[in-house]
Amino acid sequence: MSLQLALKINDRDNVATIFADGIVSGSEVEVRDKQGNSEIIKVLGDIPFGHKIALKDIHPGEEIFKYGEEIGAATKEIKKGEYVHVHNLDSMRGRGDLKGERNK
């Protein structure tokens, strides 16, 4: 199977977006950044086209960055290579259900 690509947008990011179909647990993806650096990461779990992969271990409560900006926080332990989405990432905004929400 040929190598599949994922894009890391900003140096600060701890996730990358996969633009390939058929990525299943154990697949290897090539994560590229804008400088042309690349890293091969083994995927843990199946990840659909356009969805995100963790580039490092992320601990519960830790911020998740894409575009160099915060897109939410981890709700559980996320391993490098794991699928990152609504099951383990919580939005920090528009949260009428939370008290004491951060509001920038």
């Binding site: 977006t17 659909p48 086209f49 356009g50 969805h51 995100k52 894409k66 575009y67 900006e69 915060e70 897109i71 939410g72 990152v84 989405h85 609504v86 990432l89 919580d90 939005s91 920090m92 905004r93 528009g94």
Partner: peptide
Amino acid sequence: NIAGGLSSIEEKSLG
């Protein structure tokens, strides 16, 4: 949006 990979309003907004 969520099925398309966007996990939060922050991610959607930044894009």
